[in-house]
Every structure is written in structure tokens, then in C-alpha cells.
Computed example of a mutant assay.
Amino acid sequence: MRKNVLVTGASSGIGRATALRLAAEGHTVFAAARRTDRLEALAAETPGTIVPVQLDVTDPDAVRGAVAAVAERAPAGLDVLVNNAGYALTGPVETLETDAVRAVFETNVVGLFDVTRAFLPQMRANRRGRIVNVSSMLGRMTVPGSGVYGGTKYAVEAMSDALRMEVRSFGIDVVVVEPGFVDTEIDTTSAMIAHDGAIADYAELERDMTAYLAAQVKAGATAEAVAATLVHASTVRNPKPRYVAPAKNAIVLKVLTTLPTRLADRLKLQTVRSS
């Protein structure tokens, strides 16, 4: 069955790969992002139906505009919302600036919240729909330097769990997809922050973290591999509440979330420092 799907953060990486894959399968994809030039190029290069939608998830007016744009093209309403927009912020907690922390929460948490709330009324009215939230393995377990970014994803996990129960009776599914490290622009630009060693006590840890992140990104999954999971979560008849992407990472996640906390801490510190 063909669906109307909105994908945020669709101009690059996982969002772009997801939009292309959904369009190739015959769905109408509303590809949303701030970079409309990229969206127009995306629409031009695929034989499927991709509708560019300009959207900054932190701008309430832009969110309302996206709702209007979808309603104009799909009067019956949206079938699936894929909340993918987001970026990473890494570093020891003490070294990060308050404005930077506030900004990443505005995009990864508040932006996701605003977009979801904007499209929920029509899903409730139709008594059907699906919300797929892109979280992270770091939304279930934390490594040094990931406290703030992971915190945004822990928040996404909590909101998704509550929302899943709240809207179940309206025929709306809420699904979380938890990628591990992925070789996309989010990892090669925003996550790989150049730390300046302003606090000398953290300099060694920052060097270790930079090496660790570089190694993990290099060995990470492709955007297309994660997109395959997102498309499955968006279109399968009875989705699971959670998917780890790639699925093989589920074993690592289970181990690190079930070990005693102090033991898990030691293992994660050793992993970061040995990269």
C-alpha cells in the first residue's frame, strides 16, 4: 500500500537515503530540511515521488508551513512521520558551552516534539498513522564525551515510550530506530568537534575521544543500511517498538546495558582509551 511519508533531515545522510528508498518503493515522500537546493536535487534525481518541503524543526512557523504543504498535496493526511533531523555534540560535559547544549536539545528534542505534535491531530482524526523516531544506541547507553548528545536521545526514547502508550488507542504506532555509529555527515562534521584543550585536565581524554570517534565512524554502517531499517519500520504491518540498526549491534547494546554499572563504565573507558 502506497503511503504519504514525511522525512525530516532529508537533505543528507540517513534522511536522504531513507527518502530515496521510500520513493523507489512507490511511496510519496515529503523530504523536509532547511537546504531546499539539496531537496530539489534529490527530487530531480529519483524516478519516484519526492516533494521538497523547507523545514527548520526549531522554527514554529516553518513547522506550521510544513503541515500546510503536506495538506495541500495529500488532503487525506500523512501516514508516516519519520523524525530524523538532528545533530551531534561531543565532549566532556564541563568543556561544553551552555548555548551549544541548549541548541542541540532544541533540535534533537524540542524540534522533534514540535513536529510530532503538529502532525498528530490529523493522525488522530484519521485513527491511523505511524511516528518513527530516530534515536541512537547512545540513547540507551553512554560513553565518555557523549553525555549531552546521548541525553537528547535518552529524551527521545522516553517521549517515544510515553507517546506509544498514549496514542495506541487511536491506531497510531510509535517506533524507535537506534542506529550505532554511521558514516554520514552528522558524524564527519558536527560530531567530530575539534576540542581546544582549554581545560588541561581533559586534554588526554579529548584526544582519546577524537581517535575513538574517528575509528567508529570509519567502521560504521552506511546510511543506506540504516535507511533499510527505517523503511521497514515505516511500512511493515506490525512494527516492533524498537529496532537497532544494524541489527548485529543489538548484542553489544544488551551487554552494556545489563552489566553492573561500574563494570560497564570500566569497559567503555578502556574501549575509548585504546582506540
Rank of each mutant, 00 (worst) to 15 (best):
V231M: 11
A264R: 04
T258K: 13
L78F: 05
F105W: 10
R164L: 12
R140D: 12
V63W: 04
S169L: 11
D201F: 03
R2V: 14
D208E: 14
K218L: 08
P260D: 12
M165E: 13
R117L: 07
L267N: 02
A88V: 07
A23L: 09
Y212E: 01
T18W: 10
S169I: 11
R64D: 15
D196C: 06
I50W: 02
T184R: 01
V101K: 09
P241V: 09
A215Y: 02
M165S: 11
D161I: 05
N83H: 07
V252M: 14
V217E: 10
I199P: 00
R273S: 04
D173R: 08
I186D: 03
S190L: 02
S160W: 09
L259R: 08
S12M: 02
P246M: 10
G77N: 05
K254C: 10
M141I: 14
A41S: 13
A24D: 13
E106T: 05
P75E: 06
Q270R: 15
T152G: 04
Q270D: 14
M209V: 13
A225D: 14
D201C: 06
N108A: 10
Q54Y: 00
G150P: 02
L163H: 06
V182P: 05
L81I: 06
P121I: 05
G65N: 10
E40T: 12
Y212G: 04
V109E: 04
T261P: 00
V7K: 03
A203D: 14
A233M: 08
T189F: 00
V182W: 07
A10H: 07
K240C: 02
A200Q: 11
V174S: 09
A31T: 01
R34C: 01
Y87M: 03
L6P: 01
E178A: 04
T235L: 15
R102I: 05
A43Q: 07
V104Q: 10
Q216R: 13
E45F: 04
F105C: 04
N83G: 01
A76P: 00
T229S: 03
A44F: 08
A162I: 00
I50P: 04
A71D: 15
A44G: 15
T258F: 13
V29F: 05
G9N: 11
I131M: 03
G145E: 11
A245P: 12
A228Q: 15
P52T: 10
A250M: 13
L138S: 12
G147F: 12
R16F: 01
H232E: 14
T258D: 09
M165I: 08
D187N: 10
E178I: 00
S274I: 01
M192R: 06
S136V: 07
G15V: 00
P47R: 05
D161W: 00
E25S: 15
Y212H: 05
A88S: 14
E97S: 06
N249W: 07
G147A: 15
E40C: 06
A250E: 11
L96K: 04
P179Y: 09
N133P: 00
L263A: 12
F113S: 07
L138I: 14
A32K: 01
N249F: 08
R16E: 15
S190K: 03
V244P: 11
M165R: 11
A264F: 07
L20G: 04
A118L: 03
H232D: 06
A41H: 06
L6F: 08
N249L: 15
D59C: 08
L20K: 12
P260Q: 11
T261C: 03
I14V: 13
G151Y: 10
A23D: 09
A225W: 06
P179Q: 09
